[in-house]
């Protein structure tokens, strides 16, 4: 794809804002529309775009599959762990009021943490799905289309 110069340049310009936007959606999620699901997908889009333009190998170099595997597990763990720790403070599962002195504030922190876990998992899982599909060796050669 070396001759698609315009594409490469535009992509390189686009990727940082996409990631930034994803982060915005992510950290905004505790008190407005947004949150981990949406942010995660947007975040993943940046990487998928990168892979589409620069090739799968480039993506895997940036984001090794082992890392992806650890990260998507970690996301779930962050989510469940946040709730789990609550139990040690005598609260119910997912009751975040232990995180701060006043309950409202604590809930905000809790949601932030949980959403981070969700975002992490969604982003990495989307990338993982993309890699998994894209990395299959095609059994039909390009000419046959």
């Amino acid at each position: 794809m070396s001759h698609h110069t315009i594409l490469r340049v535009v992509a390189k310009f686009l990727i940082p804002p996409i990631i930034l936007y994803a982060l915005y959606v992510q950290w905004h999620g505790d008190y407005g529309p947004g949150g981990g699901f949406q942010a995660g997908v947007i975040f993943a889009v940046a990487f998928i775009l990168y892979a589409l333009v620069f090739g799968l190998d480039a993506l895997v170099r940036v984001f090794p599959t082992a890392v992806i595997r650890i990260l998507f597990s970690l996301g779930v763990l962050i989510y469940a762990g946040t709730g789990f720790v609550a139990m040690f403070f005598g609260k119910n599962f997912l009751d975040y009021s232990y995180l701060g002195h006043d309950p409202v504030h604590a809930q905000e922190w809790g949601i932030l943490l949980v959403e981070f876990g969700v975002g992490l998992t969604v982003a990495t899982v989307m990338i993982a799905i993309f890699i998994a599909f894209a990395s299959r060796i095609p059994s039909i050669s390009d000419e046959e289309w």
């Binding site: 595997r69 650890i70 998507f72 597990s73 970690l74 996301g75 779930v76 763990l77 469940a80 762990g81 789990f84």
Partner: peptide, 8 residues
Amino acid sequence: MAAPICAM
């Protein structure tokens, strides 16, 4: 919680 640990 054990499930993601297994995968990780």
